[in-house]
Structures are given as structure tokens and as C-alpha cells.
Design a protein around this nucleic acid. Structure first.
Length: 1137
RNA sequence: GCCUGGGUGGUGGAAUUGGUAUACACGAGAGACUUAAAAUCUCUUGGAGGCAACUCCGUGCGGGUUCAAGUCCCGCCCCAGGCACCA
């Protein structure tokens, strides 16, 4: 009898006592690192789905062990996180206690399944010895400017009382508790993962052994799109239109952000006042003069030169090539080069964003404050509140930017910056849309005539839940921003084509932009002026929060424009829909008139497809290769005094037939208007010559041609001045060149990936190792003082004010500044759960090292992970975070390889028998302990691997499990047949075939077919009389990884003393694997007519003889002529008659 | 809407990448052993026709390529996962 309990306990004990799975230190052996995604030790314990992946890696690890590899197969605990903390809140116990208990349960459960884990390398992310290195890495990022404080609004879960990263949302809701997420402005630590976006994307190509689906998910998540940024100027249509006189308000999120905003208002105003005093006033004066003299639309270098002249006039000393080394703790961490340093005090940027990245501003600011260089705008300002200082700096920056923005040509009070992937459609931009949260609204508050209406819309948009946003998918809402207009730069510029650039600058820019009015009387500028709308279909979080809307070539813009046009009252101007791309189609088409002499058959005979027949016209498709024939037909048979135009796939072709039958034909091009005019044709009662776009616009109005003109697909540029005739790709390039040359835009790449919001306002996480010092700002905790451990607290409850419970522990919060030894406060935010899991796999390599995160030599040997297995739900979080973290460690020289995981496979879920997810809620959870108890760990292992393809989810079936159990019982029963006699040849052949298949299938994670093959073998062995002992042993060895306990038991019973897992993996005998006899199929006209068993190496002639002799084949060949015979060796003989 | 998989017996699933469709397992049916049941063993098991040899039909639907299509191409339908007004 097979007593699984006794056998499994016996061997588990034996393996542990003999330390069988301790990872070898023999570095002469080739290494193999197999890794499972480590679990979060939840209170619910394991269900049968969890071990599926662990069983798979265990099988792989055991085989690799037997194949002579030095195998690392570790396990640990991802133990920070909310469930433990919530439990702690409820029960007033330390989360650690809960963790310890759960880990004990998990470990106990895992051990019963018989895994090869080396528990000597167990790790736990909540262990200070572990998280010391999580903190250490954070500090390295901080020093490099990759960890920075941000005040941007972030995702806030009101239920979990913490901020969340984008990756932590599921359909706009908290992934953990399902609460609706709010956008809350607050101070956050953020990791600059976007700096790595391009590498994270590109290096996916270096991972051929990752599943394509997961790579694709990552690509989508990173969401790279290439295009350009374009500046649209904004003009007001009241008074003199001088928008730069508008008082720039504090940017919106600052006022919201500041909890004590009222009491700080006075301070803030002071800053504002200061900006316009003295020095700043002089600088602004210089700037105004420059603009007045040379106007807009020049390259940056031109303004540089002009400003230099003006600075000199104002008597200001300045440097323009000043490079300032930014240091942190005497270590140079970067260089900051402002555009100008005026009077050694004011740092001036011509751009909205300084040359340094945004993340580094923090460091620059900290450094400048403590250096000889003074950021003059802050010199006279004293406040002890760090937050205010920060705001002042940022606000000062905004002030400079705003003041200079007209020069800098970047998004600001007087201009709108957009991102687009289709710069080639710029001529088709007929309105602009900004997100409800766009700062322009506040900045131009005084110029906007319907400010109240817009405010109201903002409120509505805010209230809309994500659900509503998606449900009302098609229904677009929005409000026109009255009182201001944007200028389509390319139309503005090309309208004044005849003028020289200087003329343009003088006349057009001065008149229309500086004193511009949006009144429609000015004919030359009107088509360049486009209305601005606020609509929630534009997101503040993507791109610049503003778009150039091209209704002809963007579905959303089209929907919005149609909606607005339908709603519009008499006072509102219609939104124009201007096609600027003619779609590339795969068939020519035409609306054919003048058909008195043309029959349907005439058309059909030359291959023309009639789509629709109307009274006086046909809508037809013409295959490209029939165009010449079609032209001939038209010339011959179309009535006089008609013309026919047809789309050629790239353009339109015209054939005119005059009253006297004279024919003229030409392709539509820029001269066409003149030609058409000569024939006296009119379109919509307008002579085309006066309106260049009219031919296209007229064609576009025809329903049959419409889709060619209103499409987001690529095609040929039309109605686009210097782009006309260019295919989309080339048109994009040319437009970008043009924009860059004129300083109105530039090539740009945009990512969906956002920086990683890295702080949580909760207790149970790694403390962020920095202190806030009144004098020195944000200071890193020195490495020697790591780890910063979590203090004991009485209440784990989040404060709800956006601060973590740690903020209440005065004796922990209050500390001294490592730099100046003055009083300072500890950072009270903690890290998210994903921090530890971003690098834990490195720690297994060297788990007890207290000098380094990992020893470099050891890392070189063991890394990268050869095979990584875990759930697909981590595709866009853990796996992106870990790759980012790893690349950073690579950059600072901690690790030797750029990618952490060579091969990745995701494990499919095991569903409950009812097809639902296993969950306490449904009461359908199956506990592995019960299965192990009743059927044995081996049966469970075999069953879970046999269920189906590894990566596919599959419902649990206890019946299926019984099948696996029977399979093992059969193997046990086989022992009775073991003898010294030779096995039958058939058995030997099947055995070696099985060895081959199992070895291959394990490597490819095709466990189900490996087991099926073993079942075939076992069935054959069962029906045999005797099995040779050595053959039986070979089988036990390949069975071992799947069912280790029973294999070890039988291995011992058959007389072996050392563990089966120390034996060498069997090699198959090539000669036995080769089939001697094969079944060849004889087909007649594709139908199987006979199956012949013949020698495998039979040649065609011999086979034909046998085949033709076959009765059934004969029958089918009788009286027929053989046309062709196809012979594929060892497979098929196909006869065609 | 977009991206990625997938659709094969009563069920889970095989099919060397274009070459015997339904391996292996479960379930079901029949039989053997048994006083009986369980367990075990043997046989049958895609559908239709036929005593049989055998024949016809059959891999979501409709076309196509090929001597040959579950597999390749074109057009749809459905299911799962991911993303989602991403400019």
C-alpha cells in the first residue's frame, strides 16, 4: 500500500537533516538561479493556487540540480503592506506580530509540499537588516536627483488614507480597497522613473525569453509617443490685449496645497512684491525692450544676444556661460547652467524648464542656498517654515518663467504649449482644448469673460467620477473660453508669406500679438485665430494638458466639434472642420455622372465595382490596375459638358469634356485652381481661385468621398501650404523642421509612464531616510546611521491629515541635522510596499552581508535570475519597478548586469471548482494542507502540473486530482514487476522517448505534456510482465522532480543509498528514440485511404509499391490517371489523381 | 475603442509549427470479480450510415491559398486578460 503521509514526512525530515537543499558554494559549477515571486504572508494562508508556481520552479530546480548545476532556489517574505497594518489598527498589536504568525503558517504549509528552498537564505523585507539596503538605495537615488520632493497633485485614497502611484490604480479606483481616488495636492517623495523610460522600453528587446504578452503590457504602460511640442500664442480681445500685464497668480496647486494658506498669504504677497522691485524690475524692463524691438518668433540665440545688449544698457552685469557645480556633501552631483547670471544674484532661465531636470531643482536649490552663489530672489526672504521656502522658490521660478515666457515661447500666461503626434495636421487645427485644471485659466482670469461659467464647469468635471467619464464616453462636454484666442502659428506665418521675416516680425507680430484683437474684421489673421475650449476629454496628466484640436483627423476632436456645432447659438462661431490629409486607400473611387451612354455592364466589364446606383450617378470603386481602362471609357462614353473626377489612391484626377467634345485632363495640384477656373467651373457658387482649399472642401462634402478626408489614418497632405503632396511621415518631419527653425516648437517624446509616487502616509513601511533641517533643507541620513528603524507607536491609525502616524512620535521625529547639528525633523512618510520587492532577489545571493547590499563577486556569479516565475498581475508594477531599480543599481556599479530576469513565465491562476476565483467570500477556497493530508503532496504536485498549460488559468477539479493519485499508485505497483531481466524493446523505446520529452518539456515549462508522456510509459509498463531494474530507476529519476517523495522512497527500496536528487539526470539513448517502424499515411486527393506500417527509412519507390498494392488504395486509384505524387519521408505519401 | 492571447469531444486539454485531428486525464456506458457495495481490472466512448470492410461529415462563422489547413492569408462573431477620451 502507498502510505503517502508516512513517506512524505520521512523524506522531508531526511532532506532537512541532510541539508540536501543548501545552496552549493562550488563556483566551478555552472550556476542556475530559479526564483519565485515571494509572497505577502496574508492571514488567510495559502490556497491551492499559490503553490502552482512554486511547484513549477521546484521541478525545474530539481532537474537542474541533477543536471549538475549549482542551483539557487530561495524563498522569502514581502511583509510590509496594508493588511498587516489594518489588522494592527483593529487589534492594537504590532504588525510585526501578525507577520510572524502568518509567516510561520506559510512556511509550515510550504514545507509540507516538499520544496527545495534553502531556508538559510530566507529574507524578509520588514527586517531592518534588509530594509537598511532599501533605504540605502533610496539615498543613492536622492543623491543623483532621482528621488525628489514634489507638490504635484497625486492620487489619494480616502479609505486607505494614503497617496498612491499610478500603478496602484485599477480603472481609476484604489486597487486595494476599490475606493474612488481623489486628486490631492501634497508633498510627496517621487522617484524619477521617467528618466529610465526609454531604457526600460528599449531593453525589452534584450529579453527574448520573456512572454510577449508581458512585454507588450510594459510597452503600453510606458506608452511612448513621438511627435512634437508646439507653441500657440494666446491673445486677448479686450483693451490692448497685453496679456503680459496680467498679474500672475500663484499657481493653483500651491494655494490648495497649503493647509494654512490664509495665514501665509501675507508672506506670499511679499514675495510677489519683491519680484517687481528694483532688480527684477530692471530685468523685466530689459526683457520688454527686447520684445518690443525684435518681436516674437525668433530662435533662442537671437533673444540671448538681444538680452545681452539690453542688460548692458541697463547697467547690469551678467554672465551667460556660468556653470555652477552642484554638490551634495562635497560630492559633485551635477552641473547647473542658467541662461544668465545677472549681478551675480539672479539666475535667469529663458525656458520654462531649466536645463537641469525638474527633479534636480530640489538639489540645486538646496545647494545654492548654502553656497556662495545666492539665488537673489530668496536673499531677503526669511522664514523658518521649509514649506514656505519651497513654495517661494517655486513661485519665484514661476514668476520668472511667466515674465519671460513671451520670449521663451513656452507654455505660460501668454502662450499655450501642446503635444501632438501629428504635427503634420497643424494646418487643420481649428480650435484648442485645455484640461479643466489647466493653469491658463487662473493665469488669465482677468481676461476671460466667462470665468464664472468656466469655474462652474471645473466643479462639474471634478465631481464626475471615473465611471461617469467612461460611461459617457462619446458624449463630450466643454465650455468655450471667451475673451481669449489662440493663434495657429503655421497659418499665421504662412498667411504673411509674401512678407519678409523682418516685415512679419515688425508688422504682424507687433500688431496682432502685442496689440492683437480677436475681432473678426482683420482679414489676414482671422483664420489663424482659433477658439479655446475647456473640456474634460483633455487630461491635465498627459502631455501638456492642452491639445491642438484637429477635428478632421481626430475622432475625439471631431465628436467635440460636432457636438459644439450642434449646440451653438447664433452668437457662437461655427467650429471649422478643415481636412488637411487625404487618406491613402487601396481602391480608386469616383462619383460618376453623365452616364447616359454608359451601361452597368460597361463598368463591370472593366472590373469596376458599383457601390451604389442613384438616379443620375454611380458611386464606384475602381481597382488600381484598371484605371487606364476606366479613363478610356470616360473619354469615349461620358456625355459632353460633364466632368468626372476620381480618387487615385493618393490624389484626385480630373477629366473634363467640353460641349464640343474636347477633352482635357489633369491631376489635382496647387495649380489646379487656376486650371479649373479657366473652365469656368464653380464650387458652391464660389470661384475656386479665390479660396485655395475649395476644391478639396467641395470634394470632402460628398458623402462618398468624405471618409477619405475625415480620417485619422495616414495619407497625403493637402490644404497645407508647404506640406502639400507629402505623405504623412515626411510631412511630420518637414513640419517639425519648420517649427524648430521658427522657434515655435520642437521634436518631443511623451510617455504615459509617470514618475513613481514613492511615499505612503502609513506606518508599516520603510521610513524614508531623510531629515528636514531649518537651515540645511532636506538632508540625507548618513549611511552609517542606517537603517532608520520604525519606532514603536501606540496607534497605527493614519492621521488623515496626509501625515503618517509617525508624525505623532515626537521623540522619533525630533532629531539633529547630520550636517549642522541643529534641530531637525525626520521625514515621516514611509515607502510603498513595492520598494523591498524591487530588489529582494539580489539579497538572496548574499543575505547576511552587513557591508553591502550584495557582494559584487557573488552577484557577478549568481546574477541574473535565470528563470523567474510569478503572477501576471505584476507585469506593470513589480516588474517595471524592479527593472528600474536594477538599472539604477547597475548605473551606480552595484550590480553587473543591466536586466535582472533573463527568463520570465507567468503562472495561470487556479480557479475554484465553480469557476470563480478562490476567495473566503465565496467559501470555495481549497487549502493545500487538506489536499496533502488526504491525497499527498506528490499527487497534488503532479495534478497541478497536469491541469493544463502552465500560464493558463484553470478550474480546480478534485476528480482530476484523483487521476494524479492513481498515476502514482500505478508507479508504486510497478515496483512488484522490477527484475533483472531486460525490459521489452517497446518499453525501452518508450522510456527513452519519455526521458527526452520530459527533459525538454521541463525546460519549456510544458509540464502537462511531460506528465502525459510519463503516463503513456507507465501504462505500457503496467501491461508488461517484467521491468528491468535499471529502466525503472531511470524512470524514477525523471519522475523525481514532479513527485519527489515517492521517487526517493522507491529509489531507496530499489537499493540506492544516496538521495535520488544527488544522482545524475538520465540521458536518453538516441538510437532507441529513433523510431524503427513508422506509420505512413497514404492520401488520395487529400483524403486518408490507408495507413501503412513500414521501416522508418523506406524510400519513395518501395513505399509506392506497397501503397499501390493496398486494396483500399487500389480502389481509389482505379481507372484514374495519376497526376502527381508527393512523398515526405516518414510521414506521408500523397497521390493526386 | 486599442493592444495581447484564445475558441478543438460531455469536461481539462494534446497535435513535432502545413502532413494520421481529438494523445493523456476526467466523466459516462458496458462487462469481470463480489451475497452486495466500494476499490480494482477489461472493453466502448466526436456525429451519421453500415452486419462488416468501409464511407460521409467534423477544430467559432464565411471565403481563399495548397496535393494537404486546427495550423497560413482575407473578412466577421464570441471569450479572457491588459490599457482606455494618451492628443
Amino acid at each position: 500500500m502507498y502510505d503517502h503521509k508516512k513517506i512524505e514526512q520521512k523524506w522531508q525530515k531526511d532532506w532537512e537533516e541532510k541539508n540536501l537543499y543548501k545552496t552549493g558554494e562550488d563556483k566551478s559549477k555552472e550556476k542556475y538561479y530559479v526564483l519565485d515571486m515571494f509572497p505577502y504572508p496574508s492571514g488567510a494562508g495559502l490556497h491551492v493556487g499559490h503553490p502552482k508556481g512554486y511547484i513549477a520552479t521546484d521541478i525545474l530546480a530539481r532537474m537542474k540540480m541533477m543536471q549538475g548545476y549549482n542551483v539557487l532556489h530561495p524563498m522569502g517574505w514581502d511583509a510590509f503592506g496594508l493588511p498587516a497594518e489594518n489588522f494592527a489598527i483593529k487589534n492594537k498589536t504590532h504588525p510585526r506580530k501578525m507577520n510572524e504568525k502568518n509567516i510561520a503558517t506559510f512556511k509550515n504549509q510550504l514545507k509540507k509540499i516538499g520544496f527545495t528552498y534553502d531556508w538559510g537564505r530566507e529574507i524578509n523585507t520588514t527586517d531592518p537588516k534588509f530594509y537598511k539596503w532599501t533605504q540605502w538605495t533610496f539615498l543613492q537615488m536622492f543623491k543623483k536627483g532621482l528621488a525628489y520632493e514634489s507638490h504635484e497633485p497625486i492620487n489619494w485614497c480616502p479609505n486607505c488614507q494614503t497617496g498612491l502611484a499610478n500603478e496602484d490604480l485599477e480603472g481609476g479606483k484604489c486597487e486595494r480597497c476599490g475606493s474612488e481616488i481623489e486628486q490631492k495636492p501634497m508633498r510627496q517623495w517621487v522617484l524619477k522613473i521617467t528618466d529610465y523610460a526609454d531604457r526600460l522600453l528599449k531593453d525589452l528587446d534584450k529579453l527574448p525569453d520573456w512572454e510577449d504578452s508581458i512585454k507588450e503590457m510594459q510597452r503600453n504602460w510606458i506608452g511612448k509617443s513621438v511627435g512634437s511640442k508646439i507653441i500657440f500664442k494666446v491673445v486677448a480681445n479686450n483693451n490692448d490685449g497685453r496679456i503680459d500685464n496680467v498679474n500672475i497668480k500663484e499657481s493653483q496647486h500651491f494655494s490648495q496645497n497649503n493647509a494654512e494658506s490664509t495665514q501665509n498669504n501675507a508672506e506670499k504677497n511679499k514675495v510677489g512684491d519683491f519680484l517687481f522691485e528694483d532688480l527684477t524690475y530692471k530685468i523685466r524692463g530689459a526683457m520688454f525692450n527686447v520684445r518690443k524691438k525684435i518681436g516674437l518668433g525668433h530662435k533662442e540665440s537671437v533673444y540671448h544676444k538681444a538680452l545681452e545688449i539690453e542688460f548692458e544698457k541697463q547697467g547690469l552685469s551678467f554672465e551667460s556661460e556660468k556653470r555652477i557645480d552642484i554638490k551634495y556633501e562635497d560630492e559633485k552631483i551635477g552641473v547647473y547652467q542658467p541662461d544668465f547670471v545677472v549681478e551675480n544674484k539672479v539666475l535667469i532661465e529663458l525656458k520654462a524648464l531649466p536645463k537641469i531636470g525638474k527633479q534636480q531643482l530640489n538639489q540645486v536649490w538646496t545647494y545654492l542656498k548654502g553656497s556662495d552663489y545666492k539665488l537673489a530672489l530668496l536673499v531677503n526672504f526669511s522664514s523658518s517654515d521649509l514649506e514656505i521656502k519651497r513654495m517661494v522658490y517655486d513661485s519665484a521660478r514661476n514668476q520668472i518663467n511667466s515674465a519671460f515666457s513671451a520670449l521663451s515661447q513656452r507654455g505660460s500666461a501668454t502662450s499655450l504649449e501642446v503635444f501632438t503626434t501629428r504635427p503634420d495636421t497643424l494646418f487643420g487645427c481649428t480650435f484648442m482644448v485645455i484640461a479643466p485644471e489647466h493653469p491658463l485659466i487662473e493665469n488669465l482670469k482677468d481676461k476671460i469673460e466667462n470665468y464664472d461659467e468656466i469655474k462652474k464647469y471645473q466643479e462639474q468635471a471634478k465631481k464626475k467620477t471615473e465611471m461617469e467619464r467612461t460611461e459617457l464616453n462619446k458624449e463630450k462636454t466643454g465650455v468655450r473660453v471667451k475673451g481669449i484666442m489662440a493663434i495657429n502659428p503655421v497659418i499665421a506665418k504662412t498667411l504673411s508669406q509674401s512678407q519678409t521675416d523682418a516685415d512679419y516680425t515688425q508688422n504682424y507680430a507687433e500688431e496682432n500679438f502685442l496689440h492683437g484683437s480677436a475681432s473678426s474684421q482683420r482679414s489676414s489673421a482671422t483664420s489663424a485665430e482659433v477658439p479655446i475650449f475647456v473640456a474634460d476629454y483633455v487630461m491635465m496628466g498627459y502631455g501638456t494638458g492642452a491639445i491642438m484640436a484637429v477635428p478632421a483627423h481626430d475622432e475625439r476632436d471631431y465628436a467635440f466639434a460636432s457636438q459644439k456645432n450642434a449646440e451653438r447659438t447664433q452668437n457662437d462661431a461655427e467650429i471649422k472642420i478643415r481636412p488637411v490629409v487625404l487618406k491613402k486607400d487601396n481602391k480608386a473611387r469616383s462619383v460618376l455622372m453623365g452616364t447616359k451612354n454608359i451601361t452597368e455592364n460597361d463598368l463591370k466589364n472593366i472590373g469596376v465595382e458599383i457601390v451604389e446606383k442613384k438616379k443620375d450617378r454611380y458611386h464606384i470603386f475602381i481597382p488600381f490596375d484598371k484605371i487606364e481602362e476606366y479613363k478610356k471609357l470616360i473619354r469615349e462614353k461620358m456625355e459632353n459638358h460633364f466632368w468626372n473626377e476620381f480618387y487615385t489612391g493618393e490624389n484626385f484626377y480630373f477629366i473634363f469634356k467640353h460641349k464640343d467634345g474636347k477633352i482635357e485632363e489633369f491631376e489635382l495640384n496647387s495649380d489646379t485652381n487656376d486650371q479649373i477656373d479657366i473652365y469656368g467651373m464653380t464650387f458652391n457658387d464660389e470661384k475656386p481661385k479665390e479660396k485655395p482649399e475649395n476644391v478639396y472642401n467641395w470634394l470632402a462634402e460628398n458623402d462618398f468621398y468624405k471618409e477619405l478626408f475625415l480620417s485619422a489614418e495616414e495619407g497625403i497632405a493637402i490644404n497645407s501650404d508647404f506640406l502639400n503632396g507629402l505623405p504623412t511621415k515626411k510631412a511630420k518631419e518637414k513640419m517639425i523642421e519648420w517649427l524648430e527653425e521658427k522657434g515655435l516648437g520642437k521634436r518631443a517624446t511623451n510617455y504615459k509612464l509617470k514618475d513613481w509616487v514613492f511615499s505612503r502616509q502609513r506606518y508599516w513601511g520603510e521610513p524614508i531616510p531623510v531629515v528636514h533641517c531649518e537651515k540645511c533643507g532636506v538632508v540625507a541620513v548618513p549611511e552609517k546611521d542606517l537603517p532608520v528603524t520604525l519606532p514603536e507607536v501606540e496607534s497605527y491609525e493614519p492621521t488623515g491629515t496626509g501625515e503618517s502616524p509617525l508624525a505623532n512620535i515626537d521623540e522619533w521625529v525630533n532629531t539633529t541635522c547630520p550636517k549642522c547639528k541643529g534641530p531637525a525633523k525626520r521625514e515621516t512618510n514611509t515607502m510603498p510596499q513595492w520598494a523591498g520587492s524591487s530588489w529582494y532577489y539580489l539579497r538572496y545571493i548574499d543575505p547576511h552581508n552587513d557591508k553591502a547590499l550584495v557582494d559584487k563577486e557573488k552577484e557577478k556569479y549568481w546574477s541574473p535570475v535565470d528563470f523567474y516565475v510569478g503572477g501576471a498581475e505584476h507585469a506593470t508594477r513589480h516588474l517595471i519597478y524592479a527593472r528600474f531599480w536594477h538599472k539604477f543599481l547597475y548605473d551606480i556599479g552595484v550590480v553587473n548586469y543591466e536586466e535582472p530576469f533573463t527568463k520570465l513565465r507567468h503562472v495561470g491562476l487556479i480557479m475554484a471548482e465553480d469557476g470563480r476565483k478562490m476567495s473566503k467570500r465565496w467559501g470555495n477556497v481549497i487549502n493545500p494542507d487538506d489536499i496533502v493530508e488526504e491525497y499527498g503532496a506528490d499527487a497534488m504536485r503532479v495534478y497541478e502540473m497536469f491541469m493544463g498549460p502552465f500560464s493558463q488559468s484553470c478550474a480546480w477539479s478534485t476528480n482530476g486530482l484523483i487521476g494524479a493519485r492513481k498515476f502514482i499508485e500505478k508507479i508504486v505497483a510497478l515496483f512488484e514487476k522490477v527484475s533483472d531481466e531486460k525490459s521489452d524493446e517497446e518499453i525501452q523505446r518508450e522510456l527513452h522517448k519519455t526521458i527526452k520529452k520530459v527533459s525538454q518539456d521541463i525546460d519549456e515549462f510544458k509540464f502537462n505534456t511531460a506528465i502525459a508522456q510519463m503516463m503513456i510509459l507507465v501504462n505500457k509498463m503496467t501491461s508488461a510482465k517484467k521491468i528491468n531494474k535499471e529502466d525503472y530507476k531511470l524512470f524514477l529519476q525523471i519522475l523525481g522532480p514532479f513527485a519527489p517523495h515517492i521517487s526517493e522512497e522507491l529509489w531507496q527500496k530499489v537499493g540506492e543509498e544516496k538521495s535520488i536528487f544527488l544522482s545524475a539526470w538520465p540521458k536518453y539513448d538516441e538510437s532507441l528514440v529513433k523510431e524503427e517502424k513508422v506509420l505512413i499515411v497514404v492520401q488520395v486527393n487529400g483524403k486518408v485511404r490507408a495507413k501503412l506500417e513500414v521501416n522508418a527509412d523506406i524510400n519513395e519507390e518501395e513505399l509506392k509499391k506497397i501503397a499501390f498494392a493496398n486494396e483500399n488504395v487500389k480502389k481509389w486509384l482505379e481507372g484514374k490517371e495519376i497526376k502527381k505524387i508527393i512523398f515526405i519521408k516518414g510521414k506521408i505519401l500523397s497521390i493526386v489523381v
